[in-house]
Structures are given as structure tokens and as C-alpha cells.
């Protein structure tokens, strides 16, 4: 516990001693604010013209703040996270390797798991701070919106946290693989994109015969897809499997980071 908090504070202060935190926090606030403004602006303009999505003079679907402002915002922001999160996590282990300070960590009477968790928590706090502005947009909608569904749009906000925390676990693992921060950044971004897009393939594959067992490949890919689970949450249908999915990704990659960080011993 003592070690974990020592690592946590060192990393957390490190974020604010270097430009990383400022760049990420400003960047995310600016882009997400701009997106929110544009979506809301468009929503106001289009609702003043017509009530909803029309086909042959019939309203098929009414415009709502949930479907036409918050849901697109959450979808876009989740992609923005693929760039922001690796920038936060890329230095966590790479820098230790580069400065040769991992030799200190590996010879102190500490467990590598506390080091990994301490570092992970530090990145989570930065990501938490980064996502606060989105809470402000959410509050604006909840306060000024006419009939927003608070459950659904809050669920989407939670989804953003889950996605960024999962990407952070992937990022810390990527960082433990290399002493080069740029490589760590791209490994995380590409792995993140893989998890986002793997579900797209599910439409083109069917059931596969595998040693006499039939394997529903399409369902497997859909379950593996981060986008799929995220969409459930954004739509307000949170299931235990969705939460389990994110938890599993976090645990898996944190465990991988521990093993990878210890692997310096195996040379």
C-alpha cells in the first residue's frame, strides 16, 4: 500500500511537471467542447425547421437531445480517446526503461503488481480530470433540456470512463514493452482501434466448423468488440456482460504489464 501510494504520487506529480497533462487536458476540453457546441447548434437549428426525421410528410422519428446530441457526442469522443489515452500512458514504463530506473524498481523490496497499479491509478486520475468537462455538457443538457432521459445520457458518460480506463490498461501494457514512447503510443492506439473495429467483421463471417464443433464466429467477434459493448452502454442498456468485458480487458492488460515489466529479469 505504501509503495503503491509512493508510485502513485510520483507519477501523478510527474504528469503535471511535464507538459503531458496540460496538453491532454486542454486538447480534450477544446475538441470535446467544440464537438458539443456544433452538435447542439445543429440540433437547435434543425428543430426550429422540423419536428423530426420526415419521410413523405410523415414524422418517422422525433429529434431528441439524447439521440441527436449526446449519443453522437459520446461516439465521437470514444474515438478521440484512442489518441488521448495513449498520450497519457505512453511514458509510464517506457521512461523507466530509458532512464534505467527499472533497475531500481526491480531491486527494491516491492512487488511489481503494486508498481503497475500505482502507475495505473495515476493515469486514471488524469483521465478522470480529462473527462470532467463532458460532465459539464451533460449537466447543461440535464438542466436546460426539455425532456432528457437522465439514465441514458448518464450511462453514456459512464461508458466513456470505462473505455478510457480500458485503453489506459492497454496503454500501460504497451508502455511496458518498449523504451520508445512513440512506439508505446502507436501500439496502444492500434490495439485500441483493433478492439473498436473487430466487431465490423462479424457481419461477414458466419458459423465455423471447428473439429466437429460449430463455433459462432460472428457472435465471438461481436463479443470481442469494444464498440459493441460501448454502444450498449451509450444506448442505456447496461448489461453485466458489458461491465464484465471492460473489467476483463483491464485485468488482462494490467496482468500483462506486470509480467512484461518483470521480464527485464529474464535476459
Amino acid at each position: 500500500m505504501r509503495v503503491m501510494s509512493a508510485i502513485f504520487w510520483k507519477e501523478f506529480k510527474g504528469y503535471f511537471l511535464s507538459p503531458v497533462a496540460y496538453v491532454v487536458l486542454t486538447g480534450f476540453t477544446a475538441i470535446s467542447g467544440w464537438l458539443f457546441y456544433q452538435l447542439l447548434n445543429y440540433f437547435i437549428r434543425i428543430t426550429s425547421i422540423m419536428q423530426g426525421y420526415m419521410v413523405k410528410g410523415q414524422i418517422m422519428r422525433e429529434w431528441t437531445l439524447v439521440d441527436d446530441v449526446m449519443t453522437p457526442l459520446y461516439r465521437n469522443l470514444s474515438l478521440l480517446l484512442i489518441i488521448m489515452v495513449p498520450a497519457v500512458t505512453m511514458r509510464l514504463f517506457s521512461e523507466e526503461k530509458k532512464l534505467k530506473t527499472e533497475e531500481l524498481l526491480l531491486t527494491c523490496p516491492i512487488r511489481m503488481s503494486s508498481v503497475v497499479i500505482g502507475k495505473y491509478l495515476a493515469s486514471l486520475v488524469v483521465l478522470f480530470l480529462m473527462l470532467i468537462p463532458v460532465g459539464v455538457y451533460l449537466a447543461i443538457i440535464l438542466i436546460y433540456g426539455t425532456e432528457p432521459d437522465p439514465g441514458t445520457i448518464t450511462a453514456g458518460y459512464l461508458g466513456l470512463f470505462l473505455v478510457s480506463f480500458s485503453l489506459a490498461a492497454i496503454g500501460i501494457f504497451a508502455s511496458s514493452l518498449t523504451e520508445n514512447q512513440i512506439i508505446a503510443f502507436f501500439v496502444c492506439a492500434v490495439t485500441g482501434l483493433f478492439f473498436f473495429s473487430v466487431g465490423l467483421a462479424s457481419r461477414s463471417v458466419g458459423t465455423v466448423k471447428f473439429f466437429g464443433h460449430s463455433l459462432d464466429f460472428s457472435e465471438l467477434l461481436r463479443q470481442l468488440s469494444l464498440m459493441e459493448h460501448y454502444n450498449h452502454i451509450v444506448a442505456g442498456r447496461i448489461q453485466t456482460t458489458d461491465l464484465a468485458y471492460f473489467l476483463l480487458i483491464i485485468v488482462f492488460f494490467l496482468f500483462g504489464s506486470r509480467v512484461s515489466a518483470e521480464s527485464a529479469r529474464w535476459s
Binding site: K10, L99, K100, T101, E103, L104
Partner: peptide
């Protein structure tokens, strides 16, 4: 232990 490269964090 003092390794060959002292394990120092430059920003501390």
C-alpha cells in the same frame, strides 16, 4: 545498490 547508470528521475 548503485547500478552502473544511477537510476535517477530527471524531473524530480
Amino acid at each position: 545498490y548503485l547500478p552502473e547508470h544511477p537510476p535517477l528521475y530527471n524531473d524530480m
